[in-house]
Nucleic acid binder design. Sequence first.
RNA 1: UCCCUGAUAGCUCAAUGGUAGAGCGAGCGGCUGUUAACCGCUAGGUUCCAGGUUCGAGUCCUGGUCGGGGAGCCA
Length: 479
Amino acid sequence: MSWISVQQAITSPVGTRLTLKGWVRTNRESKADGGLCFVALSDGGCFDPIQCVVRGTLPNFADVQRLTTGCAIEVDGELVASQGKGQAVEVQVDGEKGGAVRIVGWVDHPDTYPVQNKRHTFEYLREVAHLRVRTNTFGAVARLRHCLSMAVHRFFHERGFFWVHTPIITGSDCEGAGQMFRVSTLDQVNPPRTPEGKCDYSQDFFGKESHLTVSGQLNVETYCCALSNVYTFGPTFRAENSNTARHLAEFWMIEPEMAFCDLMRDSQIAEEFIKYCVNAALTERPDDMKFFDERIEPGLIARLRHVLETPFRRLPYTEAVRILSDAAAKGKKFEYQVKWGADLQTEHERYLTEEHFKQPVILMNYPKDIKAFYMRLNDQGTDGAPGDTVAAMDVLVPKIGEIIGGSQREERLNYLDQRLEEMKLPAKEYWWYRDLRRYGTVPHAGFGLGFERLVLFVTGMANIRDVIPFPRAPKQAEF
RNA sequence: UCCCUGAUAGCUCAAUGGUAGAGCGAGCGGCUGUUAACCGCUAGGUUCCAGGUUCGAGUCCUGGUCGGGGAGCCA
């Protein structure tokens, strides 16, 4: 009798003798046929547990009767066609036919086991994050997360991109994306002081102030300008005091960067990328996706198929403002007024993608004053814009809003320096970034995507804290 | 960080300022090729924390902690 996974077992021919190892999901007892226990067993490898029908012929049947949700066991038995409804096959465990159940780990005090055989709220399960992955929902999320991670790497690998491990710790405080976590080995209570009384970071581990990265983009651009097509996929840290269902202090980000690439091709890759990941989830994890479709977001699979079949709608920021203004004129109520030059609010993005177009939308060419210094300046009057724009794009999807933000980068040194000066950024600090524009500069473009937001989009889960194993957020670093 | 809202049994929730309750889960028993099982019994409480008002506070007031919804920042 060989040990196989539950996934392998359910696709094995009837009559196969097998050993399974896993955890009890449920245990139901019957007095029929001289005593039976129906033990649903899961090893986490697939959505459905397998039903083990344990006969009263087992010498330790009394122990089997005492099994509760969460117990770890090993089962020897034979795969048979199920007599009951609800499953095609089940494992017959009969002591007279070599069947056995070995109890590996009991659950102490079943009445206090945090993951009971009943419906729990996600908020409660977050408090027992070490055990919540044993539930249907979080098991499915974990498998989907893996599936999407593999899809990300496969997508880029198949297209000749190289995965670049950009640093987690950065000595640059000018990555330009918000609050950073400090990394220091100095005494927090009595740090060394400079003559002016400030903290003396020259005595710190790196000899200068250092932080956790908020983006690998500037670093990965250097590899882009040698390997042509590259991407990062790693942890990212933001010390923003954001308390929402869409933000984490620690999350995983994907940032492709392509040389000899303009904004239009950038947006095409972004669209292909989203569709590739959606398709991977639907084709590789139909069991989990069926569950999300039935229990988490009714209509999810239809929504995702629509995403796959429909070309993303591309339109200039300037036109989006016109559409939103027209909607407001016709009576659509927005809390914030729409006007050219201001960033679009969440309500505006949702109107465009959920009500007006009802599909993913790519907005392009934003006013330069609301975008980062490294984005490429467009020619005046691009898309009929009344002011200067940059070659930026945001991919907006229903429910999530902005899932991707990208741009063509400014490859012309004089324009880049002008932008640094306008935004009062110290050019000296960007010396190596500027070097890329001095030595064989090329047009290049890329985008950034928050991995957990992709998982939200594909699973239909509502809170980003429920699609990462151990969420880090303000006041939240347990586990 | 701002606005709104909440915290009572292991979990989900009730309880006019006047004796703390149900469903589910758990334990025991009954019934049953069961599968959201069903029926009966039992156990289970510092009502988030610290103050205050009151003869009396789960309930009212003040401050805090944490959760949820929305917003901002963003991915």
